[in-house]
């Protein structure tokens, strides 16, 4: 589904990704871990299409298509959704506007009719209650005045409504208390199915206790230094990143 091949990316003139390779297949959940500054967030930013990241070589394919040539919104319409580490507050734009506009953009792109209002409301209300969010969220401006936990829940709510093929979650666990973490993790787990892939960027093993990954990758200095199964996360938790750094230097 997602193929990242020998990706080199510079930000403000310095190289952050230095030949990253990663393949994510449908049905898989991958966790991308690594120390600060390794380039974890850079990868998700490049896949989402954020400005300021220069791809100097390599390619990113999504379902065989060159992702890097697609507009930001085209990537979303193709089925990629990024859950932000720091979701942006958008004063004046109600959540309901955003959800409706986004869902209809997807439907129109697939050549479907726009969703009728009652059907839309039913869908959104179901997902809201699944995320243990109050109905008043819909009339509130996107993320404005939301607590850290509310913002993250809102990101997952958008995923549940939009049902992406590839969900990328950038440090979705940061700023969450234990209860919020459980709700967010349940939301993400409910997205798991044979056709969908999930790529999680995280610092901590904690999240992976709730969402058990198929593959764990350690990103060190702009490339993947080690990959393994879920047990790799436990090892990292116990031993830190030092040994991976030493191994990869050797």
């Amino acid at each position: 589904m997602l193929e990242v091949k020998d990706l080199h990316v510079t930000v403000d003139g310095s190289e952050i990704l230095k030949g990253l390779n990663l393949t994510v297949n449908p049905g898989e959940v991958h966790a991308l871990m690594g120390p600060n500054g390794a380039g974890k967030s850079t990868l998700s930013a490049v896949i989402a299409g954020k400005d300021g990241y220069e791809v100097t070589s390599g390619e990113v394919l999504f379902e065989g298509k060159n992702l890097l040539e697609m507009e930001i919104e085209e990537r979303a319409l193709a089925g990629i959704l990024l859950g932000f580490q720091y979701p942006v507050e958008i004063p004046g734009v109600k959540n309901i506007y955003l959800l409706k506009a986004a869902l209809n953009a997807q439907r129109v792109a697939r050549g479907e009719e726009e969703i009728p209002a009652p059907e839309f409301m039913k869908l959104v209300r179901e997902q809201l209650s699944f995320m243990k969010m109050d109905g008043s969220f819909l009339q509130r401006a996107v993320n404005e005045g939301f607590s850290g936990g509310e913002k993250k829940r809102n990101e997952i709510l958008q995923m549940l409504v939009l049902q992406p093929k590839l969900a990328m979650l950038d440090e979705i666990d940061s700023g969450l208390d234990i209860d919020a973490m459980k709700v967010v993790a349940e939301g993400i787990n409910s997205l798991r199915n044979a056709d969908r892939a999930i790529l999680m960027v995280t610092h901590y093993q904690r999240l992976l206790e709730h969402i058990v990954p198929d593959r764990v990758h350690v990103l060190v200095d702009g490339r993947i230094a080690k990959s393994g199964g879920k047990e790799l996360a436990h090892e990292l938790e116990a031993r830190g990143y030092e040994w991976v750094l030493e191994e990869s230097a050797a």
């Binding site: 507009e71 930001i72 919104e73 958008i90 734009v93 955003l98 997807q106 939009l162």
Partner: peptide, 26 residues
């Protein structure tokens, strides 16, 4: 706010619509 324009676009909302939405919000 270009960050907000970007955030809306990552949800599949085209750029013109995103800018319009933010203008109306203003």
């Amino acid at each position: 706010d270009e960050e907000a324009v970007f955030a809306l676009r990552t949800r599949g909302i085209d750029e013109q619509m995103a800018r319009g939405l933010l203008t109306l919000a203003f």
